[in-house]
Amino acid sequence: MSLEYPSSWRFEPSKDVIVPDSAIDEFFNIIVKIGAKGDRRWCLEHFKCFFASAAGEKSYESSSESWAETDLRGYMLILATNPPLFLEAFYDACEYLQNNHTQYHVPGVQIINNICISNNIKYKIDPPNLIDLSEGKASVSGVPRPIKNLIFAADGPKPDLVLSDALDNTIEIVENAEYCLVYDLPIPQTGLLWTHLVEWWAKKHNLPFPEKSTEHNLFFRLEESLSPNSPPEILLFETYFKHFHRKLGECLPALVPQVYLHYDPKPLKQLKERKPLPRQRMNFIILFSNSERVVIEVDGKHHYADGDKASPQKYSEMVAEDRKLRLQGYEVYRFGGYELREPNGQELIASFFEQLFKKHGVM
């Protein structure tokens, strides 16, 4: 299905908006990654055909793969002055592959939109519509602040943190750093993908990339951070990769476990006159972009009860923290541990993530 937008945009695009070279490079690199899953030259010719058609040109087969790259870039440059036509050509080419050549993994609309955001291209795809953001018709939701520290997957004693630069909110782990992971790279506007996390892990430990053994190494390290006393958490983590790793390929968002949200420097036994900070760690987080952050919690009995006795106080504290997160721009979803123990637990998890991915334009 082609994008719908005023026909005047085809002839009179906004003079203030273009597709810059940096965005062309990002879109071209995505095309190359798509082609890596099949016939690379055919994929280049496929996208070239759509861009040439949008530019009002007839596309002829290039004499070699390198010329196909050059010719494709040429048509992309022609459309750079008309973002609606550029985005329509890329979107339509991806849609055709998704519907007719399923061996090729194509990006969801959220990845396209995030490239637009990071390159100040003031359009947004909201299928079947293309929206001009400069007209105030839509806005980007989520958390307005960039992520500065991603500390996760602690599998031992609590890390001891200090502010090495309080003015810049720069932290340093001075004790127990070996028991947690710190992703120290900027979160791309396209979101934190599993392939980003694996590449970071490979460089950190001098492992080969891309390589299945490196993926497995990281997967098992992350799983170690999940409590063996919470089989539902482990089920959710394993089901996520079982159902979506092959289906989404390099577009798979990273499901990051045990992420620090708040940090209380004092252990419980040292607290006297105040309560500890609530929800110091989140079970899982998915970063669809720097601003779109999805928190996923798996609730055991301890979330709403003291032993076998229901605790209205614990429950109210939990939902109060959920409200705070939502008001900050987070999405928060909860599973009851009991429902994941049911025979259809895996199907429930897979169905949830499919709907979440469709909402965020990943599928």
Rank of each mutant, 00 (worst) to 15 (best):
L3Y: 12
S8R: 04
W9G: 01
V17L: 06
I34R: 07
E45K: 04
E57D: 10
K58V: 08
L72R: 08
L85W: 05
L97V: 10
H101F: 12
Y104K: 02
G108F: 01
C116L: 12
I121H: 01
K137S: 11
K137L: 15
K137R: 14
G142L: 14
P146C: 13
K148I: 13
N149K: 03
D155P: 00
P159F: 06
L167R: 11
T170C: 03
E172Q: 15
E175S: 03
W201P: 06
P210H: 12
T214E: 11
L218R: 05
F219Q: 03
R221D: 01
E223F: 00
P228Q: 14
C251D: 03
C251T: 04
P253C: 06
V256P: 05
P257G: 10
H262P: 06
R274W: 01
K275E: 11
N290K: 15
G300L: 09
K314R: 14
D322H: 12
L325N: 06
Q328N: 04
Y330L: 01
E331S: 07
Y333K: 04
R334C: 11
R334S: 07
G337S: 05
E342S: 15
I349F: 05
A350L: 10
Q355D: 13
K358W: 11
K359A: 13
K359L: 14
